[in-house]
Design a protein around this nucleic acid. Structure first.
Lengths: 339, 339
DNA sequence: GACCGTAGCTAAACCGGTATAGCTGGAGCT
DNA sequence: AGCTCCAGCTATACCGGTTTAGCTACGGTC
């Protein structure tokens, strides 16, 4: 048997006013005198009243929660700190407005889409964050049709009429190539992430352009699924090829660590024989020996910004396009001049 | 303007029956004929009806969601795959019953407790999972007072009247010590996790008992906060001490990796000079060179089991005490006979 | 003194479901 | 024939908020 919680009816009875007056008072809206408001707030406090979220959601047609879906097979995530940091940042901001985050991990995009439909029709969330955007992503169109407020995280702006929060991956890539180019590298390879993802494509374009600008002709990209296995095997292929690169750029930290393991196993010295750079910094990168040069970004702050943006959209403001700081390259022991 | 969703009223109108009949039909309860039920379901399908979660929650006094709170400063999590795997497992099971998971990361236990109070009074969740149990944990008492159904994850049974799902850490520790003892190690150290945590204490007790059983007298434990920094510095202290251990057992994978980094930096060979064992397996452990011997458990399945247990509690069954499989030690290159 | 405007409140409808008391008609029993 | 019983339904209250129409008292205006 659940403990009986006080309702606004109880407050009304106790304060000798009507339910309506209580509602007005508690929500800080005009229509009650200052004196009555104080009395009502006093009683509410005394009874330790809290709004029943279901009742409020039903009558106000708000769920006071927003959603985030991650469409990745369970086993491919777990090592990347990115999402945990992001979620922490999102919640830090959302909690200031008592908005809850519904976080769900699903197997694939079909399941993700089905989930948006369900959330929409059940009115479980007021809005969603979209991550891991793909080229011609179906979700953009879907959430617009469902009229579901949304913020695209990581996309470079202008997805239909949706708001977005993003970092300039191209500029970041340029800073990596500049770092390696200045060290004297002329054969650079990249172990890229999932080919379909928008940010992968943008990085690929930037990679080739920046390489060309430095007169680097051997600038190969290998596609992977972000897992350590594929990161390792891609590294093995590169290092045992006919003309191995003198530097490798990885699209995430996990693959970079895997690559470092392969190099050690093959007896290829880091950074003398090959320099390694990780996209996304994490304890992982710092732990390794030698520590990995990595592209660091403040993912927590990024999450806060994304949440703030979604909240303004929910307030009815026109969707904004927020650019985050450019990630900063942190040089460490894994990069040096080629032998 | 939100798209107008069909309600059971619309279905009732269209099917020529009352709202009550529609409710009965949609919930598969007796009270309507098979023929009418089919007609109603047909109309519901046609209109693509879905229940409004707020309305259902309000009248049925169920939220159809359960909560999980992680009380750790944002920066100390992120590398451990444990929680991601756990969450995936929880959701896999919960989604079979369309129960949502409210997942929240907070700074400390005070914030966690405040959150339970809020969830309870707002009736946002039907139950919660408790993780990272401490000795004399305040939360046990709190959720019982709030009459909030709960499952303790990782505790060794019997927390007030709460259900629990746990693995036998003591047996697992014995298997580690046996492995090291059989290899010939007689000076074993342990880099432990947070001292206040229940499972840390249980592991410590088991560590000392098992060591004593093998005639290992030098069995030191160093307390840490689970971060890579403390794992690294503890390792440095141990390896540069007067009589360094020939084997080190770490309470999580992150610290073990950090320890391996320190060993490499100090020129201490693994496993010849020191053997390393990680509690919790992850890609991280496999990636390293040499790969880490690790204690593997199926965290995904563990999560599924925990969710199943909470669902039975919500169904009104008496709280059960479920023991998970004993984690299995996976020997890899980081352990070998001492020099 | 009649009229108007408004601050401050009440009463009641409403959101979309679930639960329950009550109604109806036909089968079964005596 | 008269009775009970029950399946199958309807009508309505209810969950706990928000919203709106309307009422009342009071001050100001002409």
């Amino acid at each position: 048997m659940r403990v009986k919680r006080p309702t606004i009816r109880d407050i009304a009875l106790r304060a000798g006013v009507s339910k309506g007056a209580v509602s007005l008072a508690l929500n800080g809206r005009p229509g009650v005198s200052e004196e009555t408001r104080r009395r009502i707030l006093g009683v509410a406090d005394e009874l330790q009243w809290r709004p029943n979220s279901a009742a409020r959601a039903l009558s106000a047609a708000r769920a006071d929660s927003v959603g985030l879906v991650l469409a990745r097979p369970a086993r491919t995530l777990g090592v990347e700190s990115f999402f945990f940091q992001l979620i922490s940042g999102l919640q830090a901001e959302l909690s200031t407005r008592s908005v809850a985050l519904m976080f769900q991990v699903v197997e694939d995009q079909a399941a993700e889409i089905e989930l948006y439909r369900r959330w929409s029709s059940e009115q479980r969330v007021d809005g969603v964050f979209l991550v891991d955007l793909r080229v011609d992503d179906q979700r953009i169109d879907l959430v617009e049709r469902l009229r579901m407020p949304a913020v695209v995280i990581g996309g470079p702006g202008h997805h239909g009429g949706l708001a977005s929060v993003w970092a300039d991956d191209a500029a970041a890539m340029v800073s990596i190539i500049e770092h390696l180019g200045a060290l004297g590298h002329r054969r650079i390879a990249r172990v890229a992430g999932l080919p379909g993802l928008l940010h992968t494509e943008r990085r690929t374009t930037a990679f080739h352009e920046a390489a060309a600008a430095w007169g680097i002709t051997a600038a190969e990209c290998v596609a992977t699924d972000y897992t350590d296995e594929q990161g390792a095997s891609a590294t093995r292929d590169l290092l045992t090829g006919r003309t191995p690169p003198t530097a490798i750029v990885y699209d995430n930290d996990v693959m970079a660590v895997a690559g470092a393991g392969v190099a050690a196993e093959l007896g290829v010295a880091v950074p003398d024989d090959v320099s390694l750079v990780a996209w996304d910094d994490s304890p992982l990168c710092r732990l390794l020996h030698p520590p990995l040069t990595a592209l660091a970004r403040d993912t927590f702050a990024f999450g806060e910004r994304a949440a703030k943006t979604l909240l303004t959209v929910l307030d009815g403001e026109p969707p904004a396009d927020v650019e985050d700081q450019v990630p900063v390259l942190v040089p460490r022991g894994s990069t040096g001049p080629p032998r």
